[in-house]
Write a protein that binds this DNA or RNA. Sequence first.
DNA 1: CCATATACGACTGAACAGGTCCTATTTTGG
DNA 2: CCAAAATAGGACCTGTTCAGTCGTATATGG
Lengths: 134, 134
Amino acid sequence: MVRLSKKVEYGLIAIGHIATKPTGEIVTAKEIADAYKIPYELVAKVLQKLTKSGLIVSHQGVRGGYALTRNPGDIPVSMIINAIEGMQPVIAQCMSDGPESCTVFTVCTIKSPLIKVQANIERAFSTMMLSEIV
Amino acid sequence: MVRLSKKVEYGLIAIGHIATKPTGEIVTAKEIADAYKIPYELVAKVLQKLTKSGLIVSHQGVRGGYALTRNPGDIPVSMIINAIEGMQPVIAQCMSDGPESCTVFTVCTIKSPLIKVQANIERAFSTMMLSEIV
DNA sequence: CCATATACGACTGAACAGGTCCTATTTTGG
DNA sequence: CCAAAATAGGACCTGTTCAGTCGTATATGG
Ligand code: SF4
Ligand code: SF4
C-alpha cells in the first residue's frame, strides 16, 4: 500500500479551509470539524501539530482558534505533510530509517531506481502550494 | 506513511534477478531467496502472483522454476506492482475504493490536486521498465 | 467566575504487514 | 516406480500502525 494517512488528508483540508478565509481571520477546530464532518478530536490534534511547526498560530480561550501565519502561496504542501507526519513521505524504509534498517540493503538492486521515483514525488509535493489546493 | 510493501520490493528484486539471466533460463525461488537473504516463502508467494499475472512462467517439479515471458525492456514496473498488489498504488482511498468509501468525499477539497500527484506517480512507474532496475 | 477554546497524552479496537507453517500437486532423474 | 525437488496455495500468528475516543489540564474573553 502507498497511501496518505487520514491525518494528512484532514490536515490538508483543514489548513485549506483556513486559507480560504481573509488573512488573519481566526477559525476554530469545531468549525472545521462541522464543515467537513471530520471527528473533532482528530482535527484538533492535527491543528496542534501544525501550530507547533509554526505554519499556523493558535489563540486559546474564548474566541480562540487558528490562523495562517503567511500567504497560502508561500506554503508548499510538502511542508504541511512534514509538519503532520514528522517526516517526508518516503516509499522505502531505507530512505527514512537508514541502510541498517533493511536486511537486504547491501544486495538490494532496486534502491537507485526507487530513489528516482522518490525524488519525483518530493518534487510534486514541494512545488504544489497551499493556494493551489483550495 | 506512503510506503511500498516488502512484497513489492521483494518482487521487484526477484523479477530483476530473473531478468539478469539469459532469456528463457529457469531460476528457482530458492536461488533468489538465498541470493538476497529473503525468506523463501515470501519470494515463492510473490513469484506465484507474478506467474498468475503472466509476467513469468513457472515450471513445476524437479528442475523447475521461473522464467521471463518477454523482454525486460517491455515490462513496466507498474505492471509488476499491479500483479503483486492486485492494483495500482494509490495515495487516497477514494481513488481505489470509490467515492462512497470516504465519508468526506462530497466536501473534500483536496481530491483534484491529489489526483495530479497520483498521475505523476503512475507515470513514473509506468515509464520505468524492468530493464532499468537491474 | 464560567463558558469556550486549545493542549496533550493515554487508551482502544480494527486492520494490516511481515513472516511462518503445513499440506497438496507436479515432474524429473535414477 | 519411487523419491526428491520444486511450485501452488491456504491457514495462521504476531507485532505494529491507524483511526478514533476519552479524560484532563490550561488559557482567556466577557
Ligand atoms: S534497501 Fe532495497 S529493499 Fe530495503 S528498503 Fe531500501 S529499497 Fe527497499
Ligand atoms: S475524498 Fe478526499 S479525503 Fe476522502 S479519500 Fe479522497 S482525497 Fe482523501
